[in-house]
Design a protein around this nucleic acid. Structure first.
Lengths: 320, 320
DNA sequence: TTGAAAGCGCTACCAT
DNA sequence: ATGGTAGCGCTTTCAA
């Protein structure tokens, strides 16, 4: 229609500098009129790029999706991808079989790069990706050392700020309900708690899994063991909500008798009674930043930059 | 490696019946040993299929992601896709420009089929897809008639059940906070309310947008207009939570003075004080079923089956 | 600055 | 039941 060769059309589409302005205009007009859209598969076949990135959630628990954290990440990622021609492929593996397929899929160049979310310490995927040279960025600091970039919220600092807030209110027996210790978010938030409390008491630490039920269980155990506690820092809002419930069941007043702080500033933090004092993470920025890094890696093929920690912020509400 | 031609390998991979068992075994062994995975782009180029479906969220509000409803859908969809070779592509369009790109993307065969979520009445996309013959299934009944299949929860029945529950408790001035009236979930839940209340009073109806803030606003307006109301049915848990807050601010006791029922049975329903009586939707099944339908349409190219309504269930907690 | 043509890896048709 | 091979739509040399 434009009276030029396929090669020229291709150059126009790919913004090649060596096309005369006149020809470019003609071709663009033809493209517009025909509503022509390049065939992705054909292009992909020759360029060996797929123009898509995978958001990989390799997590046995179905929990992740309901998690506001994940929702924020998706929003950030998709926002950063919006004015790109990149597509977002959601790759989810819950069973062992699916994880195997996932690995093959990702390692075989079906996506140009990978964003890894909700990593557990024993997951072999990051190392595999790094070894295979697949561009990949982690959402959250890896527990074990991996030659991949990552972006994380300042979990440790946020936890410390939370505990200091409790100390500042005169609380002296401050317990904590941790996240899973095979995830950096779990480890770091516990480390932050320890930072603020020199010589912490092991009896004041109970391990949870971020879920509300685990919060109930942990709080119950803590009250049993340490009836004199006057505050608790939970490593997730969900666990804090569970703790609230257990405290109510035990007849303890919040925040008078026991102060409670959560983590995430998720939507439930404002619904509990009293509303949760909590630590906000910049989830959107996190999603944006991991995407930016991944796109850069894909573009330049460059070595991974060092990890980046984004600041967290204490949000004070009624529970502490 | 197997000592056969590419054609035979292709037949093995595509489960062609005309391959001798012996050869098939040899080829499969070679495939396993080489870790060979077919190139998706090349295959796509010749088959004109992409082996991926799009989950299209064409919604100006960022709200959707935080919505537990959406999370459940994603889980259902990805579950139904798990033992398939289909990939899930998340297509999100928030701005007008993105919506335009989305339309082109989808209409140009970049996915084999489309799942549409969170549809507003004025969205031209469903009709466009139907006209273009792109397999598509709607999550939720369309407001305007569209020649596409859909699967929805029984919003109307659920709302009726909720209001009947209130009537059964002796409530007589039952107000409602509706969802947006350009979405079927908003319309149907209002219709269900009307079904249970012969000759409803327009003063008892206030329109919201599913968000918590709109719940606060609507409840405040209702109290202002109808101080004598003794119950309110909100078309979402978020709005119910907002209503709870407004009621507390107004000094009304829940459920004694005013009973409250929400919709969705989302995670916040158990966190509010009192916990929300609400209507549960089978989100997971919804996701599964739309996916099943889409896969069938893609497979057979068949005409759309009639819409399907999945039952909802009243979950009684403290607020009513 | 433009065009001709080779091939990307696969499937599907036609032979055998 | 198997192999040979054309060709899917595009990008990218290489020539002109």
């Amino acid at each position: 229609m434009a009276g030029v060769s396929r090669a020229t059309v291709s150059r126009v589409i790919n913004d090649s500098p060596k096309v005369s302005p006149a020809v470019r205009a003609t071709v663009e007009a033809a493209i517009a009129q025909l509503g022509y859209v390049p065939n992705r598969a054909a292009r992909s076949l020759v360029t060996r790029r797929t123009d898509s990135i995978g958001l990989v959630v390799s997590e046995p628990e179905a929990l992740v999706f309901s998690d506001p954290f994940f929702a924020g990440i998706v929003r950030g990622v998709s926002g950063a991808l919006a004015d790109t021609s990149m597509q977002l492929v959601l790759v989810i593996a819950q069973t062992a079989g699916q994880r195997k397929k996932l690995e093959q899929y990702v390692l075989n160049g079906h996506v140009d790069g990978v964003l890894l979310v909700s990593l557990h310490g024993d997951d072999p995927l990051p190392a595999g990706l790094a070894a295979a040279g697949v561009p990949a960025v982690l959402v959250g600091r890896p527990v074990r050392d991996v030659p991949l970039t990552w972006v994380d919220a300042d979990n440790r600092g946020g936890a410390t700020a939370a505990v200091r807030h409790l100390l500042g209110q005169g609380r002296r027996r401050i317990a904590t309900i941790t996240g899973p210790q095979d995830m950096s978010a779990g480890v770091d938030r516990l480390d932050g708690y320890r930072d603020a409390l020199p010589g912490p008491d092991a009896a004041l630490i109970e391990i949870g899994d971020f879920s509300e039920e685990s919060g109930v269980r942990a709080m119950t155990a803590l009250l049993d063991r340490e009836p004199g506690l006057d505050a608790v820092f939970a490593a997730s809002d969900l666990m804090a909500a569970g703790a609230l419930r257990a405290l109510r069941a035990a007849g303890r007043g919040v925040p008078d008798e026991v102060a409670v702080i959560g983590f995430d500033d998720s939507i439930i933090a404002r619904q509990t009674d009293p509303a949760l004092t909590t630590v906000r993470q910049p989830v959107n920025e996190l999603g944006r930043e991991v995407t930016r890094r991944l796109l850069e890696m894909i573009g330049t093929g460059d070595a991974p930059a060092p990890g980046l920690v984004l600041p967290t912020e204490l949000v004070v509400r009624g529970s502490a």
